[in-house]
Structure formats: structure tokens, C-alpha cells
Design a protein around this nucleic acid. Structure first.
Length: 250
DNA sequence: AATCCCTACAACCGCCCTTAC
DNA sequence: CGTAAGGGCGGTTGTAGGGAT
């Protein structure tokens, strides 16, 4: 049995809030507070809205200390830095920015920052020329079981490539959303089987309609770091001595 | 002028966590 | 201890507005 819905979606109003509704919610909260119960608040305030919707409206828009738009360079840097460390924990990141909400930060990241860090020119600049197949290592990989695993791993890879930018002349962002398409002699086998990798194409989907494809190789150092990051999490890689490049695989 | 496309962001959805009973 | 309800969060969708064609 699933849990009961918090409100009757057929009868409560949805969609954009009107200025009148904003005024009612604002004055109710200013006078009585939230009462510690968002579910009952709309009824008390005389609003035909879901309690969760009221909470979101208040926290993300009506709260008096909210700052809208116009992220500064300093805020950009804080967001990027924290994203490197934390991944998409927007509420934690937002807590480091006065007057910003998690929704604000998330939207800003998805619409501006991510793209700013991922222009095709930068991507091209960080991708080394392909290594001869004979020089490429064997990669042992275990497939991830579900989307959240993949998402987590991509966050880690993003963090890895951000941290490794010092090895390149430019920042080396790897987008969160990317899919490995198996090509050449890269073969995915069942869990724990060994794969031999000579080539892989990553289709890069940056969340907009733009997409880029290229051969993408990580440096040996990066792969060692990647292995450290993900090794116990379902992805392992073996890098023979003396090889210069390897391949990330999940 | 009309239509299409893109961007920004508000709002919703659904899941997980916490807490009260 | 188990269950149900509310809160919180990240991901996704909807839509208004502006620019391009």
C-alpha cells in the first residue's frame, strides 16, 4: 500500500501563484507562523493550495531574506567549489550562500554554470589525441545497477576532472549527464567480467539541445584517482605501468 | 507580423528521512 | 518496534518571455 497523498490534487489549485495568493500566504505566516504543519496551513490561511506547494512558495520565493537573480562571480566560485566536493547536494550548497535557496542554486547551475563550464571549445581542448590501441590498458569494470549509481559516479567523475584541471591548461569539466556508447572493441560483459577497451565514444549531453561526441580519455593519474573514488562502489580499473592514458567506463 | 526556438526559473513529483504515536 | 504522516530534497516539467528566422 502506498502512502496517502498529502492533498486532493483534483481539487487544490496548481500552477503559478497569483499576487493575491502570495499576499494571503505572506500575511498568514507573518501573523501566525507556519504552525509547524504545512499540510494544515493552507486551510487555516484560506488558500486552496497543497501544503507542500505553500511551503515551496514561501521558502523559495516569499521569504523576506531571499535574494533573486544576479549571481556574483564569488557565488559562482563557491557553487563550483562545493559542487566539486559535494555533488548535487543543493540544499547544502545553498546554505553557504546568503539569501539563496536550493532551487535557485540548482536552476542557476543547470541553466548557466554547467554550460559556462562546458563550452565545446573547452571540451575539445581537454581531449587528448587518441592513443594507439596497443597502448591502451585493460579495464575491469562492473556495471552500475541503477540510475542513481550512475549519477553518483558521474558526480564523482565530474569532481575528479574538476580537480585534475591543474594537469591541463584549462578547466576540464565533464558533464554530469553523459552516456558511454560502446564502440570499437570496447565490450561490456556481465558483472565482474573483464573487458578490453580500445575505444569508446562518449555522447555528451549538457542538458540543453546541444550535444557533442568525442573520444574521451582520462589520464593515468586521473584513472588512478577515479579508481580510488569508485573502486569500492562498483567500478574498478587496472592500469598497467607505463601507460599514459586510460579509459573511464561504467 | 507570425512562428519557432531557446532560456530561465517557478512549480510539481516522487522518494527518502525523521518523528510522533 | 512498526506504522503513518509531515518535512525535506533532488530531479524533472511547464511555461512565459524574448530573440531569431
Amino acid at each position: 500500500m502506498g502512502r496517502a497523498p498529502c492533498c486532493d490534487k483534483a481539487t487544490v489549485k496548481r500552477g503559478p501563484w497569483s499576487p493575491e495568493e502570495d499576499a494571503v500566504l505572506r500575511s498568514h505566516i507573518e501573523e501566525y507562523g507556519t504552525g509547524g504543519n504545512w499540510i494544515t496551513l493552507p486551510k487555516k490561511a484560506g488558500l486552496n493550495r497543497c501544503g507542500k506547494s505553500c511551503r515551496l512558495r514561501w521558502l523559495n520565493y516569499l521569504r523576506p531574506d531571499i535574494k533573486h537573480g544576479g549571481f556574483t562571480e564569488e557565488e559562482d566560485n563557491i557553487i563550483c567549489s562545493l559542487y566539486r566536493k559535494l555533488g548535487s547536494r543543493w540544499s547544502v550548497i545553498a546554505s553557504h550562500l546568503r539569501g539563496r535557496t536550493d532551487n535557485d542554486v540548482k536552476n542557476y547551475w543547470n541553466t548557466k554554470l554547467k554550460k559556462k563550464l562546458m563550452t565545446p571549445a573547452i571540451i575539445t581542448s581537454i581531449i587528448p589525441s587518441p592513443t594507439p590501441a596497443s597502448l591502451l590498458p585493460t579495464v575491469r569494470a562492473e556495471p552500475y545497477n541503477n540510475r542513481s549509481d550512475i549519477s553518483r559516479s558521474v558526480d564523482s567523475i565530474f569532481a575528479l576532472t574538476q580537480d585534475s584541471h591543474k594537469f591541463y591548461s584549462e578547466p576540464s569539466p565533464l558533464p554530469r549527464e553523459c552516456r558511454a556508447q560502446e564502440t570499437g572493441q570496447l565490450h561490456r560483459h556481465s558483472r565482474s567480467e573483464e573487458v578490453s577497451a580500445t575505444s569508446s565514444t562518449f555522447t555528451v549531453d549538457d542538458g540543453s539541445s546541444n550535444s557533442y561526441a568525442n573520444d574521451l580519455f582520462l589520464s593515468e593519474l586521473d584513472l588512478r584517482y577515479l579508481t580510488d573514488l569508485l573502486g569500492d562502489d562498483g567500478c574498478q580499473a587496472e592500469v598497467p605501468q607505463g601507460l599514459h592514458r586510460s579509459i573511464a567506463y561504467w
